[in-house]
C-alpha cells in the first residue's frame, strides 16, 4: 500500500489512504491530463507534424510525451535548493521525497534539469529542441519511418541553425543538446519501470 505519489505531475505526493487504488489513479490522471493535452497542442503546431499519418502522430506522442514533459517542466526541479515543485504549487525537498520512496529517477531528473537549464537556451531554441525530442523516427510502432525521419532532419537542421546563430562562440552547445536525447530515453525507461512498480503495488 504505497502512500505517496512522488511524481511532480501530481498536485501533491500525499495520497488519501481511504481512497482505492483506482480512485488514486483517477485523481493522478486528472492531474496530468492538461499537461498531456498541451503536448498534443504543441505537436499540432510543429510544421509537418499533421502531415504524418494519424497512426504515426499517435505513436510519436505516446512514446515521447513523457520526454517532452521532462523538458517543459525542468524548472520544477530546483537544483540549488534541492526541491521539487508539484503541480499544486508546493515545494518538497529531496530528502522528504526520498523518505516518501523516491528512488534513482529523482536524482537523474535533477541531473538532467541542471544540465539542460545550464545550456541557457532561449524559449525558441527550447521549443525547437522539444519538437526534435517528439519527432524521433526510431520510436516503436512507426509505420512510415522515412516521413518521420525527413521531418526530424528538418527540425534538427533548424535547431542547429538557430543555436549556431544565437551562440556563435559556443560551438559545443548544439552537440550537448543532441546528447540530451539519449539522456531523455534513459529517463523515460526509468520512469516506465517506476510506473510498473506503482501499478504492481
Amino acid at each position: 500500500n504505497r502512500m505517496h505519489l512522488v511524481c511532480p505531475m501530481n498536485t501533491s505526493p500525499h495520497v488519501n489512504p481511504h481512497k482505492s487504488g483506482h480512485e488514486v489513479w483517477e485523481e493522478f490522471s486528472h492531474s496530468f491530463t492538461p499537461a498531456v493535452r498541451e503536448v498534443v497542442e504543441f505537436a499540432k503546431k510543429i510544421p509537418g507534424f499533421r502531415d504524418l499519418s494519424q497512426h504515426d502522430q499517435v505513436s510519436l506522442l505516446k512514446a515521447g510525451t513523457f520526454e517532452v514533459l521532462v523538458v517543459r517542466f525542468a524548472s520544477l526541479f530546483d537544483v540549488k535548493d534541492r526541491t521539487v515543485t508539484f503541480l499544486g504549487g508546493k515545494k518538497y525537498s529531496v530528502d522528504t521525497l526520498r523518505a516518501m520512496g523516491a528512488g534513482d529517477l529523482l536524482n537523474s531528473m535533477f541531473d538532467f534539469s541542471e544540465k539542460l537549464i545550464n545550456l541557457g537556451l532561449s524559449e525558441e531554441e527550447m521549443s525547437l529542441f522539444t519538437a526534435v525530442v517528439l519527432v524521433s523516427a526510431d520510436r516503436s510502432g512507426i509505420e512510415n519511418v522515412n516521413s518521420v525521419e525527413a521531418l526530424q532532419e528538418t527540425l534538427i537542421r533548424a535547431v542547429r541553425s538557430l543555436v549556431t546563430k544565437n551562440h556563435p562562440n559556443e560551438s559545443a552547445i548544439f552537440t550537448k543538446l543532441l546528447l540530451k536525447l539519449p539522456d531523455l530515453r534513459s529517463l523515460n525507461n526509468m520512469h516506465s519501470e517506476e510506473l510498473l512498480a506503482f501499478k504492481v503495488h
Binding site: 491530463t33 498534443v40 499517435v58 506522442l61 505516446k62 510525451t65
Partner: peptide
C-alpha cells in the same frame, strides 16, 4: 509492460486531443 502509454490511459487522452477539433466541428 511494453506499452506504458496505453497503461496510463495516455493513448486515449492523445487521440481525443488530436481529433478534438474534428469532433467539435458543427455539422
Amino acid at each position: 509492460f511494453s506499452d506504458p502509454a496505453s497503461n496510463l490511459g495516455l493513448e486515449d487522452i492523445i487521440r481525443k486531443a488530436l481529433m478534438g477539433n474534428l469532433e467539435e466541428r458543427p455539422e
